[in-house]
Write a protein that binds this DNA or RNA. Structure first.
Length: 271
DNA sequence: ATGCCTTGCGGAGCAAGA
């Protein structure tokens, strides 16, 4: 994506989020995407590796600093930035017994705070995984409330594993009882909006069918049987600077694709 | 149809994803 200068001649930062479903399996695709789309900041989820296995060298060669919160086999999140990367914190506060690597936060470009979020899936919805998901969402709400009060703009991007509305699901009736669509999940997603956060894709593209995920099975991509579950939530100070947002469908159509595709937001420079 | 893919792990066939 091309950087567009504002009236002051400053480039506007682009922040993208992508669940890559294994950074090792996806490295060629991620490098191609970084070279083409050139996001200033990339929030990655499901890297499925420990910190030492993250390809920092290859990604660093493209000009990105990396902050990684990895885990063996499952989960794992990272932040890539070519605007500088500081004040990195790993893990979502609120449960010292939670060892799943699903949250990393940092300051980029000196003043913009970002988080890469891999929210628990929660299926099957009658298993302990669902209450874990809901408790995790409550912890996120509590933490996001504090972030919204900072003087810095905040972008909370990632795989939320929530379809906020029926328009975000290709078959709402069939998915009604799924953990991604259950009323409890949607209520807790709306609780984040009630704090003052803006769903950038939803406000920029207020229509059904703006999907970010297509299952590997059943020809879902070819049939456009998708879900919108990857979101970029903007704090009020970030939302004031919203220039554009979108979904980059191209990576989903490439060989050896992730089942998710990147979503992005572009912010105006500070006045 | 708890399958249909894809990945990690480990060296066969699960578990997990959404």
């Amino acid at each position: 994506m091309i950087l567009i200068a504002n009236t002051n001649g400053n480039p506007m930062p682009t922040i993208a989020t992508w669940n890559v479903n294994s950074i090792k399996a996806r490295l060629p695709a991620v490098l191609r995407w970084l070279e083409r789309a050139r996001p200033d900041v990339a929030l990655l989820q499901e890297i499925k590796t420990v910190d030492d296995g993250f390809p920092e060298q290859e990604i660093g060669d493209l000009g990105y600093a990396c902050a990684v919160h990895g885990q063996k086999t499952y989960n794992g999140v990272a932040i890539l930035s070519r605007l500088g990367l500081e004040d990195v914190t790993r893990g979502l506060p609120g449960d010292d017994g939670d060892d799943q690597a699903r949250y990393i936060e940092a300051v980029v470009g000196g003043t913009l705070r970002v988080a890469s979020i891999y929210l628990p899936n929660g299926n099957p919805a009658d298993s302990p995984k669902f209450p874990y998901k809901l408790a995790w969402m409550e912890r996120l709400r509590a933490h996001a409330a504090g972030l919204a009060r900072l003087d810095e703009p905040v972008v909370l991007g990632g795989d939320y594993n929530v379809c906020p509305t029926d328009g975000d699901v290709y078959d709402p009736a069939g998915w009604r009882d799924d953990a991604l669509c259950r009323p409890d999940s949607r209520e807790r997603f709306r609780a984040l909006l009630h704090l003052g956060y803006t769903d950038a894709i939803a406000v920029r593209h207020p229509r059904p069918g703006v999907y970010t995920f297509w299952d590997y099975q059943g020809g879902a991509w070819q049939k456009d049987n998708g879900l919108r579950i990857d979101h970029l939530l903007l704090s009020p100070l970030a939302a004031d600077r919203l220039e554009d947002a979108g979904v980059d469908r191209a990576p989903r159509g490439e060989p050896k694709a992730s089942d998710h595709t990147p979503a992005w937001v572009r912010l105006r420079e500070e006045a």
